[in-house]
Amino acid sequence: MIWDRNAARSQAPGAALRATGPAKSLVRVACDAGGTPTELLLEFLSKYTSQRYPGQLGQRLPVAAYELIENGIQYGSVAKEVIFEMLERDGWVELRVTNHAVPARVSRLREQIGKIAADPSKAYAEAMQRSMSGGKPMLGLARVSHECRMELYLEEGSVGEVLVVARCRR
């Protein structure tokens, strides 16, 4: 996949923090867009991250990865694969999920990520509240930021390609 960085744009606060240094790719998985993250993938990521990042980070990363992939599948096109990648760059760990989505969904996603990035704790509480009232909560993304303490941002490529990135310090 070639990512068109010149075409990338985002209104999320975290976008200004985008890293550009050389990346070391650790994990790359293509998921069937018609499915959801499997327990097998969760098990693999839990083992891998707990060995590579002992302590709290190793516990938080699989949760974030799972929720990002699930979100990518839920909001992406059913005709395209969802690509998950974990990499290290400039002292950060990045989780990247690429999919394809229609403009209306991308717009909603961008708005949601902006709210989450502005105040993760408040966004999580509001997502739980929406869940209580039967709405679509987008709880998973709020969880990535609040529970997993990762910065979130969104980039758009060409022809409906969407990249959601979560990152934190190693």
Binding site: P37, L42, S46, P62, V63, Y66, E67, E70, M128, S131, M132, P137, L139, G140, R143
Partner: peptide, 16 residues
């Protein structure tokens, strides 16, 4: 040890 966000909603539903 792990609950996905869809499963968290089950606890929310229970309180409702």
């Amino acid at each position: 040890t792990f609950v996905n966000s869809s499963a968290i909603r089950l606890f929310v539903d229970w309180t409702t």
